[in-house]
Every structure is written in C-alpha cells, then in structure tokens.
Design a protein around this nucleic acid. Structure first.
Lengths: 169, 169
DNA sequence: ATAGAACCGGAAACTGACATTCCGCTTAGG
DNA sequence: CCTAAGCGGAATGTCAGTTTCCGGTTCTAT
C-alpha cells in the first residue's frame, strides 16, 4: 500500500467519524469524501460500501474505548473512580463513532469484550457502595451514546450532572 | 369548518406527534397521513407544508407543557418539588413534539413565555439550596429534548438518575 | 329529502438528494 | 524514467418523498 493511500485512508476514517457525529450513521458518502479532502472515487476504492466503512469505524472506536478503560483501571485503584474516568474519557473522545459502534451490527465481538470488562468494573463499584445500584452497564453505554449523538448535550455542562447522578447518594 | 374536517385535523396532529417522535422532524408526510387514517391530500389541505404542521405541533405542545408547569406549581408549594414534578410530567407527555417545539423556529413567543416561567422556578429552587446551581433552564430543556428524541433513554430507567443529578448534593 | 358546498382518497407526476461507476490523468517509488 | 497504484469528479442510476389534482363521497342547511 502506497504511503499516500494509507494517509488518505486515515483521513477518510477521521472525516467519517466527524460526519457521523453530526449527521448520523447515514451521513452522505460525498460529504465524508469532501471533508477528507478526497474524491468519492477514492472513498469507494477503500471502502466498497457504507457498511464496511461503518464497521471499520466501529472497530477502531471500540478499541479506543477499550484502551481508555485499561488506562482508567490502571490509573485508579478504586472501581468507582475508574468508572468515572472511563466515562469522562469516552465522552470526550466520543464524537460520532459511538453511534456506529453501539448500533450493534458492527464489531460485535470486540464490543462484547468491552461490555464484559466494563460490567465487572461497574459491579465492583456498586458492591463498594460508591455507585448507584440501579443502573446497568447497558444504561451506561446508552448514556455515552446520548453524549455522542446529541450535539446539544455538551460534555462540559452535563458531565458533572451525569456523574453525580450515577454516584450513590 | 365541518365536523369531520375538524376530527381529521385532530387526528393528523396526533399522528404527526407520534411520527415525529419516532422518525424525527422530517418524518414523511405520507406516513403521518396513513397513521391518521387519512389521505395525503387531506393532510396537505389542512397544513400546506411541513413547516405549518410543525408549528401547529409546537404550539400545542408548548401549551401542554405550560399547563403542566402551572399544575406543578399549584400542587407543590416547594419550588424544587415543582421543578421535579414538571420534569416528570414533561418527559412522560413528551413523545416527539418536543423536538419540534424546542427546535426554536416554531412558536417562539409561547416558548419564551414557558422558559421565563420555568426559569423563575428554577432560580427559586436553586436559591432554596435544593437544586444544583450549575444548570440553567436551557440545560433543562435540552434534557427534556433528549428524553423525547432518544428512544433508548427510557424514562422509568433514567428519570431517577436525572433527578438525583439535578438535586443539590 | 335534496342540493351543493365542503371534503376526501390516493394515483401520478415531479423533485432532489445520494449512491455508485468509470475512465482519463497524476504520482509515488523502485 | 517507467509503470503500477492511485486519484478526482463528472455522469448515471435509483429511490424515497413531496405535491398536485380531480372524480367520487359526505355533511348539513333548508
């Protein structure tokens, strides 16, 4: 693979993430191409159709989340603190890929691994009495999704509120 | 206006609200008509275009919210309790009209009146030390919007979390 | 009962936004 | 300097919705 081709591929993924963030999973291919500074032809050469592109996006994003989770666990000995760090990290890095990643159809195995690791952490935090017991890991994912998909929900403004809501009173 | 025409008008508004809830502000006119048990022709006779329909929806909905607010204030002497009651009521009655109502373009005067009344209540609740001080009325509206637009955010599951997040720690 | 104004349904024509293809030109890199 | 790999973007095809229109139907006032 030629160097410029690789560069374009990365740009496309980046642009696709932004576009999906703003316009949802069916953002126009042409918009994605334009934002990547690339012709549609190039986009289609690299990703034969939207499903492939979305899958690549999801794959990449789930791995980023997994990394974030690992780092949070490593940095914070306390489970609840780790959950908080993960949420903050995910929301900030989130942008639009979440919509694709959590839609379910893409990258199911990687997604499941993430959910399992997160679930263990959540249960621990709840067992410690630090996190409210009536929210599940699925709810947490849903909330990340809201931040990613709903532009009006600005992290700086709503994250403190969410974290307080999630903690045990 | 003939009696059957009025009946159809009401049905269309009802159907439009549901359709907007599920498919967003650009739900197909044809879908709305079908759900109302009416031909597209009838829909267009009553509402020349989508903007008019959305405006009618917004108007109706903002008034419902206003009524809910009045009732909450009347029933609850405490400001924070009234805010809570209003939020619960709004989320439950919400469905999709919020998307249209809060989009901003429609029914600006009625909307503004609502925001003003709500704002006074919020400030009171915050002054009482019962509600967290770092959320504004606009944020509250945004949150209602999330419940209305995001089907995955089920009120029964997320409302307690939201209310806890909104209260002062 | 009945005239006729108001209303209705839904087929059909129109529209525009996107997806996808294709090919002549450009460029990396050995 | 050669050529395989890559590129852009005009052109074409597709389809979901919008909007119009008119022959038939239903109210309701008299």
């Amino acid at each position: 693979m030629r160097a410029d081709a690789r560069r374009n591929r990365d740009r496309i993924l980046e642009a696709a993430r932004d576009a999906v963030a703003e316009r949802g999973a069916d953002a126009p291919m042409e918009l994605i191409a334009r934002r990547a500074g690339v012709g549609v032809g190039t986009l289609y050469r690299r990703f034969p159709d939207r499903a492939v592109l979305l899958a690549a996006l999801a794959e990449q994003y789930v791995h980023e989340l997994m990394d974030g989770l690992d780092r949070a666990v490593a940095a914070e000995p306390d489970a609840w603190a780790a959950v908080r760090a993960f949420v903050v990290h995910s929301v900030e890095k989130g942008r639009g890929a979440i919509a694709a990643a959590l839609a379910g159809t893409s990258a199911p195995q990687a997604r499941q691994a993430l959910v399992q690791r997160l679930d263990a952490l959540v249960r621990q935090a709840q067992a410690d009495g630090a996190m409210r017991p009536d929210v599940g890991t699925g709810d947490l994912m849903e909330l990340l999704n809201v931040f990613a998909c709903h532009p009006g929900v600005i992290p700086e403004r709503f994250l403190p509120l969410l974290l307080d809501g999630l903690s045990r009173r």
